[in-house]
């Protein structure tokens, strides 16, 4: 009950006045809808469902919460929906992340992060470079040697199209070590699992994907991880894998995820969700979820979040230009 009363206190601070007869119903007055702008089972969907699970376990929200899957163009459909149909709706949260950055950077829809109300970045799924267990690459160094010497020898698969997350990661890595990324064959697939299937079937030399997508195959032991592109090592089955930084290449690439509210919501609501998410991210339930999924905590709020989003979109846009995928 103490949790409840604490919420009560928090609420009285961020009270949202309902117009009816001066009676102040505490926010949220209605069930909360979380839009996962992707199909069920993917990273965005999992983020939404895990959030619901943690908030329910911690009894942080008094209203029921539902997850809606709004599939379409890496978040393009959802951001268009929120901007056209849900302006000012304080009861709908939408999942955002790196793929949305790429979508917005390419100007697929006429919106930017400034057209919505970003609330928080929560998790980061770090990218990894993996090869078959029996491959000649020992670690990232040997891989980069070949990349510099003879890029045409390499064929990289990733779980996304040209100009989307996995391809961008590889392009950024190549740029970091001074190689023209367009000289390397990149095979786009429709998901990390497809890319790993190509790797196991010896169709490609290495795969760029994220920790959570590779986890199953890593546990099987048929692939080895050349490097994790994280600031520090990740636990679990990846505990023995050195980061790129440890191997002399200062390179970090994260598939981050977070939430935004529709435009024109009251600032109190934004503050409410910042606090709620901050509290949730520090809870025991969330710690357990991070351990299960091998996501890293990637908390950003307010001004730092705004700066991060600006930087993310600018870097993505300049990479796209260098790859010739955008004018």
């Amino acid at each position: 009950m103490t949790t409840r009363s604490r919420i009560g206190i928090a609420l009285s601070i961020v009270l949202v006045m309902s117009g009816a007869a001066g009676a102040a119903a505490p926010y949220p007055q209605r069930p909360i809808e979380i839009i996962a702008p992707a199909a069920a089972g993917g990273g965005w969907d999992l983020t939404a469902r895990m959030t619901v699970r943690a908030l329910q376990e911690e009894r942080q929200i008094s209203q029921p919460m539902t997850v809606t899957n709004m599939v379409g163009g890496s978040g393009a459909v959802a951001i268009a929906h929120v901007n056209t149909r849900r302006k000012g709706d304080a009861h709908v949260l939408t999942v955002m992340g790196s793929s949305l950055t790429a979508t917005l950077a390419r100007r697929v829809v006429p919106y930017t992060f400034r057209d919505v109300t970003p609330v928080a970045a929560i998790t980061g799924d770090f990218q990894v470079l993996v090869a078959r267990r029996d491959s000649n690459f020992v670690n990232l160094r040997t891989f980069i040697d070949v990349l510099r010497r003879d890029p045409a020898l390499l064929t990289i698969a990733g779980g996304s199209a040209f100009g989307a997350l996995d391809h961008l990661t590889f392009a950024a890595l190549a740029k970091k070590v001074g190689v023209d990324a367009t000289k390397v064959r990149y095979v786009p697939t429709s998901g990390g699992s497809d890319a790993l299937t190509l790797l196991l079937g010896s169709q490609v030399t290495a795969v760029m994907t994220s920790v959570s997508e590779a986890l199953g195959a890593i546990e099987v032991g048929q692939i080895k991880v050349l490097a994790v592109f994280a600031p520090e090592r990740i636990g679990g089955p990846l505990r023995g894998v050195p980061t790129a930084r440890e191997q002399g290449t200062d390179f970090v690439y994260v598939n981050w995820r977070g939430y935004y509210l529709p435009p024109e919501v009251p600032t109190e609501v934004t503050a409410f969700w910042q606090q709620t998410i901050d509290r949730m991210a520090k809870s025991k339930s969330w710690a357990k979820i991070l351990d299960e999924t091998k996501w890293a905590s990637f908390l950003r709020f307010g001004e730092p979040l705004r700066q991060f989003l600006d930087q993310d979109i600018n870097e993505t846009a300049s990479l796209l230009r260098e790859l010739g995928l955008m004018r």
Binding site: A40, S193, L200, L215, A217, E219
Partner: peptide, 11 residues
Amino acid sequence: LGIPGSSTTAV
């Protein structure tokens, strides 16, 4: 293999 073979198994 830890790799889903179809969208159903992915879910």
